[in-house]
């Protein structure tokens, strides 16, 4: 994750970060297509932008995704839960290119074969699940909304845009950006990739953490699972304390995995 800090020294990366953020917000605000939960979330074509930018601009896209989502929130009002939204979107923009570095074997993210499509799907799904986990976990910790509400809707929302829109945008812009030598690897040659075994361990921890958080978050927040080892006052609705006790370690595991990648 050191590149998330290093990129701030590079003026081009700072500009690309602002551009990613502005593009995300510019598509986010006017093009809210279909409300999924009125007042909470809607089907957002803009969610395709962080995925596309991630493959192109790497760490700049991660910060851009976080800032772009913040700008979108500022257009419609913010709440303490948006702090979790900021970091969730940071991960949403950070994970795709990090996973792609591990599983791509040097190929570009433009879908030219079924096998690339599978890998692309996996990278987007991992990003969407951690993003959803983080927002669901945060909102349930604050007892604003149950994990199972946002935790599932966001996965669906992100994946819909990532699968229906991003591949087409990538196919159009990736070759041009590569020809223009504006991919993050070219702009920041100082980024030294971690050794493969370490990155693979990081990926395993990330997947274990986010899947664990998603399963336990859903079970706890719907009341289907009441852990016997927790005192009754902790395991009661709105389940904020049980989510804090059980889901938080999985979230930590996922973040440790990201740090290793």
């Amino acid at each position: 994750m050191t590149e998330l800090r290093l990129m701030w020294r590079n003026t081009r990366m700072v500009v690309l970060c602002a551009i990613s953020a502005a593009l995300y917000a510019a598509v986010l605000v006017p093009f809210k297509v279909v409300p999924l939960i009125p007042g909470v979330t809607e089907l957002r074509p803009a969610n395709a932008i962080p995925i596309v930018c991630s493959f192109l601009f790497g760490p700049a896209a991660a910060w851009g995704s976080a800032i772009g989502n913040m700008i979108g929130d500022f257009f419609g009002g913010v709440s303490p839960g948006d702090l979790f939204g900021f970091f969730a979107n940071l991960f949403y923009g950070f994970i795709p290119y990090k996973i792609w570095e591990i599983i791509s074997r040097g190929e570009g993210p433009v879908i030219r074969s079924p096998w690339i499509a599978v890998k692309y799907f996996a990278a987007c799904l991992a990003a969407s699940v951690l993003c959803a986990d983080f927002v669901g976990w945060g909102d349930n910790l604050l007892a604003l909304r149950p994990f199972s509400l946002l935790g599932n809707v966001i996965i669906f929302n992100n994946m819909a845009s990532a699968m229906l829109l991003s591949p087409f945008i990538l196919a159009a812009v990736y070759p041009r950006v590569r020809r223009g030598r504006m991919l993050y690897e070219e702009l920041m040659p100082e980024i030294k990739p971690a050794p493969m075994p370490r990155k693979t361990l990081g990926l395993a921890l990330l997947v274990a953490g986010e899947v664990g958080a998603w399963i336990t978050g859903n079970l706890l927040s719907t009341g289907y699972w009441t852990p016997g080892f927790l005192p009754a006052w902790m395991a009661a609705a709105p389940y904020d304390k049980s989510v804090a006790m059980i889901v938080s370690p999985f979230m930590l595991l996922a973040v440790v995995g990201l740090c290793l990648m």
């Binding site: 003026t11 690309l16 297509v33 089907l43 087409f168 159009a172 812009v173 950006v177």
Partner: peptide, 30 residues
């Protein structure tokens, strides 16, 4: 809903490329 999402591709691509054209100049100006 899904078809409506897909129909935004011809909007996003030109906006994206237009934005990238500004990036280099902006960095130099900064």
């Amino acid at each position: 809903p899904f078809e409506r999402i897909r129909r935004y591709v011809p909007v996003v691509v030109p906006v994206f490329m237009g934005a990238l054209r500004k990036a280099n100049n902006m960095a130099m100006a900064l």
